[in-house]
C-alpha cells in the first residue's frame, strides 16, 4: 500500500516536471533532435561522430570561440560551403567544404545541434534567425 502511494507521488512529480518544461525548452528539444539526424546524414562523414574533425584536414566543431563569434555566418557556411582559409583551435585549414542543399529549417536544426553538442552550449538557433542570416551571405 505504501509503495503504491509513493509510486503515485513519483508519477505526479514526473508529470509536473514534464509539463513545466517551458515552450523554449520544448522548441530547443525539437530543433536538437531533428538536427542530430541531419548531422548524421550531412556532416558526420567528415566532421566525425563527436565533431572531432580529421587531423589537419577537416576542422573540429569544438571551437566554441569560433562558433560564438561567427554565430551569424554559420548558416551561410552550411548552405554555400567554404573555400577560403579558416583557423580553428589555432590550426589553419584550407581544404574546401562543399555546399549543402538544405532548407532553412534544416539549417536551423543542424546548427542548434552542433552549437549545443561536443562541449558547445549556445542555445537554440531559430528559423527566423537563420532566415535573416541567409540574406546576408557574402
Amino acid at each position: 500500500m505504501k509503495l503504491k502511494i509513493i509510486a503515485v507521488i513519483v508519477f505526479l512529480l514526473f508529470l509536473l516536471f514534464v509539463s513545466c518544461q517551458s515552450d523554449e525548452q520544448m522548441e530547443f528539444n525539437r530543433y536538437y533532435s531533428s538536427g542530430s539526424l541531419i548531422y548524421q546524414n550531412h556532416c558526420q562523414n567528415c566532421h566525425g561522430t563527436n565533431g572531432e574533425g580529421l587531423q589537419g584536414l577537416i576542422p573540429s566543431l569544438k571551437d566554441s570561440v569560433f562558433l560564438k563569434y561567427n554565430k551569424n555566418t554559420l548558416a551561410c557556411l552550411v548552405k554555400y560551403g567554404l573555400k577560403k582559409n579558416i583557423t580553428i583551435l589555432k590550426r589553419s585549414y584550407d581544404s574546401e567544404m562543399p555546399p549543402n542543399d538544405l532548407a532553412p529549417i534544416q539549417i536551423a536544426n543542424v546548427l542548434t545541434y552542433i552549437t549545443n553538442s561536443f562541449g558547445n552550449k549556445m542555445g537554440t538557433i531559430t528559423l527566423p534567425q537563420v532566415g535573416i542570416d541567409l540574406t546576408k551571405c557574402k
Binding site: N45, C46, G48, L54, Q55, L57, I58, E96, P98
Partner: peptide, 14 residues
C-alpha cells in the same frame, strides 16, 4: 579531394 567516405576511411586507417 573525396568528400564522402574517405574521411571515415582515413580516420579508421589512422
Amino acid at each position: 579531394t573525396c568528400p564522402s567516405i574517405c574521411p571515415i576511411m582515413q580516420r579508421n586507417m589512422l
